[in-house]
Simulated assay, not measured.
Amino acid sequence: MFASGALRMEEPGRIDHTAVLSARDFGRLSRFIYDTCGIKMPDVKKTMLEARLQKRLRALGIHSFTDYCDYLFSNEGLEKELVQMLDMVTTNKTDFFREPDHFNYLSHTVLPDWVRKHPGATLAIWSAGCSSGEEPYTLAMVLSEFALNNPGFDFRILATDISTRVLEKAKNAIYQESQVEPVPFELKKKYLLRSKDRSSGMVRIVPELREKVRFRRLNFMDEDFGMREHLDIIFCRNVIIYFDRPTQEKLLQRFHRNMKPGAFIFMGHSETLSGLDVPLVSVYPTVYRRQK
């Protein structure tokens, strides 16, 4: 049941579409979002938040943002609505082979050195904030190509996101042809399947790559990421820009705890670790390494 009080409900599709997010309710929501997932919601984000959450008001048949907040903060809301709300407010922008110099550095510098030092081992890599799957599948392509010239090399990829909505897309591994344009032609032939309905303009990642990627939901604000093993490489690109500096520092310290000595972390080109108290050293533009 809903929280006690006069929660005004209407039939879905018949609510007041002009519901306005007041400064008070925006403050309640922005504080809650920051406390829950570390994302800052400055005042300039108010219009964006209002527009995105209108979808949830319509889906639930809730009349106002005040009532929505009351429901969200109730026991039932925290259980049933929290993930839905976070899906609406998180930004998920990614592409195949985004920031391609990172993949060149991975293939030509990081992997050859790793194979020499860890013969017969399995590389453990984490795509943190994987969105709809373009990054982990790009990694799977790059690592599979490296494996062709390095017999015995194997890898596994963990891909996580806070949004269940984009994780479902990632698991399905189905993309529009326009989305895979950055994939080199030779890799398209190997790793993408065209739909039987050629007019659909859809492709799917081949099963061999899909089997290499394990998806699960993860909130960066969790103290324990639930990792069963320490990692060799982390890709966390264009994610920490949504957090304030204290939250960035805490998050990177948690990453560090889950990295093997000498492990690498790849950040986005708009992100910097400068001024943060984390034991990581720069080895390449926006690529850092855990000190031994």
Rank of each mutant, 00 (worst) to 15 (best):
I157G: 13
R116H: 12
P136K: 01
N172E: 06
G61N: 13
T122H: 11
T18F: 01
R28L: 14
D35P: 00
S144R: 01
V183L: 05
R204G: 15
H256W: 07
G5Y: 11
L106C: 05
E223H: 06
G275R: 03
L193M: 14
H230V: 07
T47Q: 12
G61M: 11
I15E: 06
E135T: 11
R290S: 14
S199D: 14
R58H: 09
F103K: 03
I157W: 03
K190I: 14
T66N: 08
S4N: 08
R237F: 02
I265M: 11
G13N: 06
D277A: 10
K169N: 14
K188G: 09
F255Q: 06
K188E: 03
V239M: 07
M227N: 02
N238T: 09
S199V: 13
D224H: 06
R228P: 07
T122R: 15
L111P: 06
E186C: 13
F185K: 09
P112N: 07
F255M: 13
N75F: 05
C130Q: 09
D95G: 04
R228S: 03
K80W: 12
L29F: 14
V203E: 04
R204M: 11
F103T: 13
A263D: 01
V239Y: 00
E135A: 13
E181D: 07
R289T: 08
L218C: 04
T122F: 05
Y105M: 11
K169I: 12
A147S: 05
L209A: 00
I174D: 01
K189E: 15
L158Y: 12
N104P: 07
S127R: 02
N92H: 15
I157Y: 08
I234F: 02
D95N: 09
A170D: 14
D101W: 15
L280I: 12
S131K: 04
S131G: 13
D67H: 14
H118M: 05
I33Q: 03
M88E: 14
N172C: 00
M221L: 12
F153I: 09
D197Y: 13
F97M: 00
Y137I: 12
D244P: 06
V287I: 14
L78V: 05
M1C: 03
E271C: 07
F235R: 00
V278K: 11
F220H: 04
K46S: 01
R245C: 01
R98F: 08
M1L: 08
K169D: 08
F255E: 00
Y288M: 03
D67S: 09
G38H: 12
K171L: 03
C37H: 02
F215H: 02
I265Y: 05
Y284W: 15
E249T: 06
C130G: 13
A3T: 12
A3H: 04
Q253L: 10
I15W: 07
K46M: 07
D277V: 05
M85L: 04
